[in-house]
Amino acid sequence: MHSVYAPLRERLYAICEAERLLGEHVHIQARVLSTEEAIGNPEGDDFPLQKGRERLMEASFGQGRGQAFTDRFGDFSGRLDQILEMELQNNYRRAVFVATMNAVLHHLGQVGGTIHCRDSAPTECAAKLAEHLHNEYGRPRITQIGYQPKMVERLQDHFEYRIVDLDPENIGQAKGKVVVEGPETSAEAREWADLLLVTGTTLVNDTITDFLNGKEVLFYGTTVAGAAALMDWPRFCACSS
Rank of each mutant, 00 (worst) to 15 (best):
H2D: 15
V4T: 12
E10F: 10
E10Y: 05
E10H: 09
R11A: 14
L12Q: 03
L12D: 11
L12P: 02
Y13H: 15
Y13V: 13
C16M: 08
E17H: 13
H27P: 10
I28D: 01
Q29H: 13
Q29S: 15
A30P: 06
E36Y: 11
E37H: 07
A38S: 09
G40F: 02
D46C: 00
A59S: 04
G62L: 11
R65I: 05
A68C: 12
F69C: 14
T70M: 02
T70I: 06
D71T: 03
R72C: 10
G74C: 00
G78P: 09
R79M: 08
Q82F: 04
M86N: 01
N90E: 12
N90P: 02
N90A: 08
T100P: 06
M101G: 05
A103C: 02
G109A: 06
G109T: 02
Q110I: 09
Q110V: 11
G113P: 08
T114N: 00
T114D: 14
R118T: 07
C125I: 03
C125R: 00
C125E: 10
A130P: 07
A130W: 06
R139M: 14
T143N: 00
Y147A: 13
P149C: 12
M151A: 14
R154W: 05
Q156K: 08
D157N: 13
Y161W: 05
R162K: 04
R162Q: 04
V164D: 01
D165S: 04
L166C: 09
P168Q: 06
P168K: 03
E169V: 01
N170R: 03
K175G: 06
G176F: 07
K177E: 14
E181F: 00
G182M: 03
P183L: 06
E184V: 09
T185R: 10
S186I: 09
A187W: 13
R190T: 09
D194E: 13
L195G: 08
L203W: 05
L203I: 09
N205E: 04
T209A: 15
N213A: 12
G214L: 02
K215M: 08
T223D: 11
V224R: 06
V224G: 10
A229C: 14
W233D: 14
F236C: 10
C237R: 09
C237E: 13
C239D: 11
S240W: 13
